[in-house]
Amino acid sequence: MNLALRDIRHNIGRFLLTCVGLSLLLTIVLSMLGIYRGLIAESLTMARAPGVDLWIVETNTRGPFAEASRLPGDTREAVARVAGVTEAGSLTFQSVETETAAGKLRLYVVGSEPGRPGGPTRLVDGRPISQSRYEVVVDRSTGLGVGDRLRLGRREFQVVGVTAGQVSSGGDPVVFITLRDSQKLQFDLAPPAARRELARGGGEATSDIVNAIVARVNRDVPVAGVADGVRRWKHLAVLTQEEQETVLSRSVIERARRQIGLFTTLLLIVSTVIIALIIYTLTIDKTKEIATLKLIGAPDRTIVGLIMQQALAMGAIGFTFGVAFILAMKDGFPRRVVVEAPDVAALGAVVVVVCLVASTLGVRLALKVDPATALAG
């Protein structure tokens, strides 16, 4: 006879209600872990998309994602001539807010040179950019399709291709235009501002500026050696692909990681308290039954097992429904939620520990029950 199961059946309503509440808490815990994993995945998307080995940015910066970086446009030719470099491309990055038929849309605009590293690599619809001006490849999350028109700055662009999963570290959809268009969009002044600059004698400012140079290195040449050569002879800051990913995953989203970690810890503490209080309440309700067990000679391990089994059953049911809830809901979040098997397994182990810790309050009460209580009226 399983005493824990019989007692659960006796208090089935309260037990199931507690399991539902616990499953909602664990759903939030899993969603926090998934949001953190999603932040990392989104922040690394732009760094991994070009498939390059080196990121060359302005001296003494960690740009272009961590801080501002500006380089002359001819830097790409200088980098391309470095021994070991097989391909190099210029990139610009900027955030733009525009209006579409669905309302305001915030975009992350990447300017790249067609045929060189940095452009869109995987299209789910349409074709790559083939003209030098006014064509754009958009991410599917923008809601735009091939043939639609998109206004960026003072110009309208024709959507010719669609990618999937291309978002910035802030979660904004990425769109790709040519380097020339992006330089016009980012660095050209509006006509009134340009006239004021000319009137002040400032002359026309050059727009041949880029934010970063990306390069691919010959497989037979050490990447670190090429990076050192660029730093020494070109006097530029260079990040390898691994260093760029570290900057994004550690520096750019560091505060978000800490905040999500703190919130997750608080939720686990709340879960522990809830389980402890419910188990304690259930133990109080069956004080006379526990006293009867002691009176007939039941060992303490039977009573302890009764309480711990209830706590573990509560945790197992709550955890199972929590995982089911998050898997069903994760695609409805506005930001990417990535639920990974190691995180689910780790949370399952934490839930077991939480249940065992929470049951100690009920165990202490049960062990203090006087067998004479069973004889009281």
Results as ranks from 00 to 15, higher is better:
80 A>I: 06
53 D>A: 04
21 G>K: 01
70 R>T: 10
16 L>A: 12
74 D>F: 04
17 L>V: 14
86 T>P: 08
59 T>Y: 15
31 S>I: 08
27 T>S: 11
84 G>K: 10
42 E>R: 15
25 L>Y: 03
21 G>W: 01
45 T>Y: 01
56 I>R: 02
57 V>G: 02
65 F>C: 02
64 P>T: 01
53 D>Y: 00
49 A>M: 11
62 R>Q: 12
77 E>R: 15
51 G>Y: 00
48 R>V: 09
52 V>E: 02
59 T>H: 15
85 V>M: 01
53 D>T: 00
28 I>L: 12
77 E>M: 13
31 S>G: 04
66 A>P: 05
19 C>E: 08
88 A>N: 04
61 T>P: 07
77 E>S: 14
32 M>K: 07
26 L>S: 04
78 A>V: 06
36 Y>T: 14
22 L>R: 05
17 L>T: 15
54 L>N: 02
39 L>N: 13
11 N>G: 12
83 A>S: 13
13 G>I: 11
45 T>F: 01
32 M>N: 10
60 N>H: 12
67 E>I: 00
17 L>C: 13
26 L>E: 05
67 E>V: 02
68 A>K: 12
31 S>E: 10
24 L>I: 14
17 L>Y: 11
16 L>R: 02
66 A>Y: 14
14 R>Y: 10
47 A>L: 04
77 E>L: 12
72 P>W: 05
15 F>K: 03
40 I>S: 13
50 P>M: 02
30 L>H: 08
42 E>H: 06
72 P>A: 09
81 R>M: 09
61 T>N: 11
70 R>A: 07
88 A>W: 07
32 M>T: 10
60 N>K: 13
47 A>W: 02
15 F>S: 11
80 A>K: 14
58 E>M: 06
63 G>M: 05
79 V>L: 03
61 T>H: 03
18 T>A: 11
15 F>R: 04
71 L>G: 06
31 S>P: 00
44 L>Q: 11
60 N>P: 01
63 G>R: 01
85 V>Q: 01
78 A>E: 14
77 E>I: 06
42 E>L: 07
83 A>Y: 13
27 T>N: 02
15 F>N: 06
44 L>C: 04
70 R>W: 08
19 C>D: 04
43 S>A: 15
62 R>L: 12
59 T>L: 15
